[in-house]
Computed example of a mutant assay.
Amino acid sequence: MLDRVKQKAGIFVKGNVDGDAVIMLHSSLSSSLQWRTLETKLSEDYLTINIDLLGYGSAPKVEQPEGYTLATEYSRIMNAIESVIGNKPFHLVGHSFGGANTLKIAVQNPERILSLSMYEPVAFHLLEEGTQARKEVLEFAHIVATSSDEQAARHFTETWNRKGFFDNLPTKVQQLMVRDIDKVNLDFIGLISEKYTLDDCAKILAPVLLMHGSHSQEISGEVIKRLLKVVPNVTECEIQAGHMAPISHAEEVADIIINTIRV
């Protein structure tokens, strides 16, 4: 058994070195800490690789923002995975922006995926040009990009949570979110510019769990609607919560994911 150790900056490995690996990716303006409950529950039987995405937690910042795409995240994530388990297969868990990244990993490595569990992946590039859903995403991204850092952090967090959420946070947490808002803008750029298609997603044959909240914004479910039509081995699960259920309902979400991993 491994205690939670810092393998590299922002990459945490824990658990059973003889077990299958579970890779965990968090949402924007969050960190690997959001998966701590799931990490702990899995550590006896699985090897968890819990990753801070670039610009969040203890991960390094993006070195060349002008050239940022999801491939930037992908390269670092895959290097981390291979440094720990080589070319062995693995499970994937992702939430929101992390979900979009796990989907990209699964599309590019379908033969290595044991299971894929996603809570409201924001793979917004899968929304067709000219649709109302895509227009809403672009408008949201524009507001975040053109507002002051504090207003952008407030708008972003209140869109995915509820009105007044940001102002009720501790000052230290607010300051961290304001600090990291530039990376949120890069996240949107990476999401919209991504190239894998729904047809590519149809090639994922491993068990796929698509979770969503009953209280989430409509835009959160648009990507899921499209994935449900094309992914062959998919299970849908609705939770009585919002977009941030992996944090607000960590125990419930963890238990649902574990059931998929253990199938």
Rank of each mutant, 00 (worst) to 15 (best):
E129L: 01
E129G: 00
T131S: 14
A133L: 11
R134M: 04
R134I: 13
R134V: 06
K135W: 08
K135P: 01
E136Q: 14
L138Y: 11
L138R: 05
E139Y: 12
A141W: 01
A141R: 00
H142W: 12
I143A: 13
I143C: 06
I143T: 14
I143L: 13
I143R: 07
S147W: 09
S147P: 07
S148E: 08
S148N: 03
S148Q: 06
S148V: 11
D149Q: 08
D149N: 14
E150C: 03
Q151N: 14
Q151V: 11
Q151A: 12
Q151P: 09
A152G: 06
A152T: 00
A153C: 02
A153T: 01
R154C: 05
H155G: 01
H155M: 01
F156L: 06
T157Y: 08
E158V: 12
T159P: 00
T159Y: 09
W160R: 05
N161E: 06
R162I: 10
G164D: 09
N168P: 10
N168C: 11
N168M: 05
N168F: 13
L169M: 15
P170Y: 13
T171P: 10
V173R: 15
Q175E: 15
L176I: 13
M177C: 12
M177Q: 12
R179E: 14
R179P: 02
D180I: 07
D180Q: 10
I181V: 10
D182W: 09
K183Y: 13
V184A: 08
V184M: 06
L186I: 09
I189S: 11
I189P: 00
G190D: 08
G190I: 06
L191E: 07
L191C: 13
I192Y: 02
I192Q: 10
S193P: 05
E194W: 14
E194S: 12
Y196D: 04
Y196T: 10
T197D: 10
L198F: 08
L198C: 04
L198D: 00
D199C: 10
D199S: 14
D199G: 08
D200R: 10
D200F: 02
D200L: 11
C201G: 07
C201K: 04
I204D: 04
A206S: 09
A206C: 12
P207T: 09
P207K: 14
V208T: 15
L209K: 10
L209N: 08
M211P: 04
M211S: 09
H212R: 14
G213S: 04
G213H: 05
S214E: 15
Q217L: 11
Q217D: 08
Q217K: 15
Q217E: 09
E218F: 11
E218T: 13
E218G: 10
E218Q: 12
I219Q: 03
I219P: 04
I219A: 09
I219C: 12
E222F: 00
V223A: 02
V223E: 02
I224L: 15
K225L: 01
K225Y: 05
R226C: 06
L227Y: 00
L227P: 03
L227S: 02
K229G: 01
K229P: 04
K229I: 01
V230Q: 07
V230S: 05
V231Y: 03
V231P: 00
P232V: 05
N233D: 06
N233I: 13
N233G: 02
N233L: 03
N233P: 09
N233R: 03
V234P: 08
E236M: 15
C237R: 15
